[in-house]
Design a protein around this nucleic acid. Sequence first.
DNA 1: TTGTCTGTACCGGCTGGACGGTATATTTAA
DNA 2: TTAAATATACCGTCCAGCCGGTACAGACAA
Lengths: 184, 184
Amino acid sequence: MGRSSRNTQDSKSEILKSALEVIRRSGAPALTIDAVAEESGFSKGGVLYNFPTKDALITGMVEYLAKQFHGEVETARAEHLASKCPTLSAMIDVTEQWLRERQDVARAMLATKADKPDLSEPFKEVTTSLKKAVEAETDQRGKAWVIWSSLEGMHFSDAHCASVFTEEDLAAAFRELRRSVEEL
Amino acid sequence: MGRSSRNTQDSKSEILKSALEVIRRSGAPALTIDAVAEESGFSKGGVLYNFPTKDALITGMVEYLAKQFHGEVETARAEHLASKCPTLSAMIDVTEQWLRERQDVARAMLATKADKPDLSEPFKEVTTSLKKAVEAETDQRGKAWVIWSSLEGMHFSDAHCASVFTEEDLAAAFRELRRSVEEL
DNA sequence: TTGTCTGTACCGGCTGGACGGTATATTTAA
DNA sequence: TTAAATATACCGTCCAGCCGGTACAGACAA
């Protein structure tokens, strides 16, 4: 065991959360190892002990978020078993919630692009898996993909602070999304 | 013709095109002033003469692309005057075209935001203007915003190389988008 | 017509700071 | 005492921006 009662796993996730916090507060280009060190309370050496390179840190972030998103969708799915497409319904719920509470996913992806443009893999795994689930639940592909990409659009444009939607617009859009899922 | 026979406007757009080319070929992190200098044939000083800071260069790129997108939508709109919502129809066309022919541009757009997170302004102007046009053309807001954000989603996820759609999926989605515009 | 002067466009070496990563010291649980 | 875990000092590289220069075009005078 190490210096304190902490173990590496705890340290890792603390560091990851700090990294996300840095991005949320100051944007992707502010994600430096020094900034993460300061934010987390670890020293630079401590951060680098847990994530030997910056790439590892970024990959860790993407994996962390991807897992979390996937988990939340799985959970929400249980409440939509009556829906025409439970997975899509769940994704709508989770997306709306993430939009309102924490716009950090797409922003983390941006950090990815700033350093190494092809660290999207862990994220892609999750989306591929969700896509298969959707395909198993409906054969109205066109409609399903419109809903899907609409959700992606909301995520990304919000993360880019490029959304022109008002609260009211968003509400209307989500209402329509939920309606159209049941038309599948 | 001597050196000073060139005019600044031409130099500027040459440099902008080179910057886009650098990003297209090597990704966002490769966008350095030196790289743009080499690509364009200008010296570093020459680039900095036309764009006093890197931020100015990036802002220039975004403005350039935003204008181009807006222009193409305006043009395409003329061919959709019979549509329920000519602006949205035009945006669908232009988006599909950009997706297929020049994902480089979408990627560049995104890449710039990795460097300077608050570049949304020039882009936002264009989207705001388009949004007003859409609002004037339909009162089915919910449906319109779903279509809108779906287009954004396609743009962004492609730019992130995070799209899980096959060619066939995309085609189906666009077919559905065109169908649903006429349902407004 | 020629020489000087001024403004515009562009060149390229230099530097200071930031940042990723290393080397090494230090602390603590077992 | 040992090894995991964390701290600190430091190094090398990269890059934005600065700055002292050059090339050329037109204006204007003599």
